[in-house]
């Protein structure tokens, strides 16, 4: 089936986004990689919607886009806050949770 390709593509994009989050130390890039992962999930939703001829998946993808927008707004606000405090911003600088 042709949809299998779409799903595999979603998995690959998800993994790419994940590896970006794990490797890049700039919070801006991390945030973008998270957006990548959101979109990979959305792609899977839309694919399954097409596969089953059911619109619910598309609606869910739409809601995900909304939430992702909210997340991006909050994330960017946090980044702005971090930049205000420090010269350089690095995800690794924030590690007060250390056990």
């Amino acid at each position: 089936m042709v949809e299998n390709g779409y799903l595999a593509l979603a998995a690959v994009l998800f993994a790419l986004g994940g590896v970006g989050v794990l490797l890049r130390r700039s919070p801006l890039i991390s945030l973008m990689c998270v957006e990548l992962m959101w979109n990979a999930a959305n792609l899977a939703f839309v694919t399954f919607a097409r596969m089953h001829g059911n619109m619910d998946g598309q609606v869910f993808a739409f809601l995900t886009i909304t939430v992702a927008a909210a997340e991006a707004a909050i994330g960017l606000a946090l980044i702005v806050l971090l930049f205000r405090r420090r010269e350089h911003v690095d995800v690794d600088d924030v590690h007060s949770l250390r056990g």
Binding site: M1, F14, L22, L23
Partner: peptide, 28 residues
């Protein structure tokens, strides 16, 4: 990270590629 993400992509993508889903052929 690269190994983990690579495994993830391989496993998930591979299994999705070969999986058979009981979908409907056409759309309304």
């Amino acid at each position: 990270s690269i190994a983990a993400a690579g495994t993830l992509a391989l496993l998930l993508g591979g299994s999705l590629l070969v999986a058979r889903f009981g979908g409907r052929p056409g759309v309304p």
